[in-house]
Design a protein around this nucleic acid. Structure first.
Length: 475
RNA sequence: CGGGGUGUAGCGCAGCUGGUCAGCGCGCAUGGUUUGGGACCAUGAGGUCGCCGGUUCGAAUCCGGCCACCCCGACCA
């Protein structure tokens, strides 16, 4: 595996060697292998629970969208047209109207919502779907940017602007940010996107931005207040209590398999992946060790007992009986990021013990009794979650800079070893933002929800500035 | 779409001034010795040398065309 100083190669090696994914015969697409898919399923389960806990229901809308639908919202079509895949031929003949493979489903869903919404009594409509989408990307990387990816997209309809805005923020905070903190151990920063970076067709876009191990930012989830734009384009109207027919307010929000890329780049180290325990496909692996056949029998008995105890405690456990040497297995499971390793050899079998090694700190190896091992593993899993989070937070802080001069801004972004989030005042002018991008390749990642009061001068143009922004180079 | 590069075994590569050039490492299979931090020995399986055409007695090797992929840039809510 490449060393971490060649970060993009390190990332690719890790994805393939840990067997999360493989290349596909179609350029830009990706095969998610069982280990990667198990991770995705765990993430889905945790995310889905939050989506439902906040009052949403799952549904499913079609893969194909009538070509004309995208065009109904001007900004939307402009934003997505270049990356849309279109089916022009099917059933052995040319289609009278080409079908777009969904890049996102605002339009089809809008079409149906127009039908389903009649009265203010029908609102709010709170639906979500888990599906695949296609966006033809020129440059792809597994998980981070693929032509087809898996995600969830929520689409809601509300009676008022305030309600829609509250929904957008509820998702951002109670679903996404909570998920990042509690499941992935990633300290993301919730914030508002600038005009140039918002979703095509949205009024406002909120985002969770997280900092990767190489100092670049990753947009990890987004939540959009669509205003009445799509309601107007698709005639989503309702008769309000006052008898007046009004356009509804809609939102949409999504999080994708890209989060897996984020998880890798935030937590991975030179030995490989480090899975956050709560979503890890395997939380504890048991490596049996023996020399002679008679030892094997005793070890097997202890392994069986420990495995059963862990399973009974709800821990996802696997024992590795492959015909390989222990050292090979240690490295292999470290590469795959399994949080806890349990070693059981003849001595341990004899003494009723197991050796427990946390992935985050090999030196913290400890010997525990077989009777208490399930409880101890649970504790260690919690500790590992906290450790991962704290390490990621410490890294983010060490790579976050508040600058007052543009020279300093440029210096930091030009230095691979220091690159990260730059916080500064910004005048709010899109032209100024574009110049910064042209000169430094950095973009405004977000206008963080938590920011200093007051005002200053724009880090680029020096004019009076009332907006606190986070800049970074991004994936 | 612009600039550069690469296509030879599952993966990574050597061979490329035409003639023992079908090879190496890893991986894989079989047998044995091993096993508390990436084992070793032996045997073996596996390739239309990206594709098409040309030059030649003879092409992985030279020439032409095509295709694919990679890197840098542009693009990327």
């Amino acid at each position: 595996m490449a060393e971490k100083d060649d970060f993009s190669q390190w990332y690719l090696d890790l994805v393939y060697k840990a067997e999360l994914a493989d290349e596909s015969p179609v350029r830009g697409c990706m095969v998610i292998r069982p280990y990667g898919y198990a991770l995705w399923e765990n993430m889905q389960r945790a995310m889905d629970a939050r989506i439902k806990a906040t009052g949403h229901e799952n549904a499913y809308f079609p893969l194909f969208i009538p070509g004309g639908f995208l065009e109904r919202e001007a900004e939307h079509v402009e934003g997505f047209a270049p990356e849309v895949a279109v089916v022009t031929r099917a059933g052995g003949e040319e289609l009278t109207e080409p079908l777009v493979v969904r890049p996102t489903s605002e339009t089809v869903i809008g079409h149906l919502y127009a039908k389903w919404v009649q009265s203010y009594r029908d609102l709010p409509l709170l639906y979500n779907q888990w599906c695949n989408v296609v966006r033809w990307e020129k440059r792809t990387r597994p998980f981070l940017r693929t032509s087809e990816f898996l995600w969830q997209e929520g689409h809601t309809v509300h009676r008022t602007e305030e309600e829609a805005e509250a929904e957008t923020l509820l998702i951002l905070n109670d679903v996404y940010q909570d998920f990042f903190l509690k499941e992935l151990a990633i300290p993301g920063i919730p914030g508002l996107k600038s005009e140039s970076q918002k979703f095509p067709g949205a009024l406002r876009t909120y985002t969770i931005e997280s900092l990767m191990g190489d100092g670049k930012a990753l947009q990890s989830a987004t939540s959009h207040n669509l205003g009445q734009n799509f309601a107007r384009s698709f005639d989503i109207q309702f008769q309000d209590a006052d008898g007046v027919v009004k356009h509804a307010w809609t939102t949409s929000w999504g999080a994708s398999t890209r989060m897996i890329g984020g998880l890798i780049m935030v937590h991975g180290d030179s030995s490989g992946l480090r899975m956050p325990p709560r979503v890890a496909p395997v939380q504890a692996v048991i490596v049996p060790i023996w020399r002679k056949e008679e030892e094997r029998a005793a070890v097997a008995e202890a392994v069986g007992k420990v495995e059963a105890a862990l399973r009974a405690a709800g821990i996802r456990v696997k024992s590795d009986w492959r015909e390989e040497r222990p050292g090979f297995k240690y490295n292999d499971w470290e590469l795959r990021g399994v949080p806890v390793r349990l070693e059981i050899g003849p001595r341990d079998a004899q003494n009723g013990q197991v050796v427990l090694v946390p992935r985050t700190d090999r030196a913290a190896k400890e010997t525990v009794s077989q009777d208490g091992v399930a409880r101890r593993v649970q504790e260690v899993l919690e500790t590992i979650h906290t450790t991962l989070f704290e390490q990621a937070l410490a890294f983010r802080k060490s790579r976050t800079y508040q600058v007052s001069s543009y020279d300093e801004f440029r210096e930091i972004l030009a230095d691979r070893a220091r690159m990260g989030f730059i916080e500064a005042w910004w005048c709010g002018d899109g032209a100024c933002e574009a110049e910064i991008k042209a000169e430094t390749q950095a973009t405004i990642r977000c206008l963080p929800l938590e920011h200093p009061e007051g005002a200053g001068t724009c880090v680029h143009c020096g004019r009076a500035a009332g907006v606190w922004a986070i800049f970074a180079k991004a994936y």
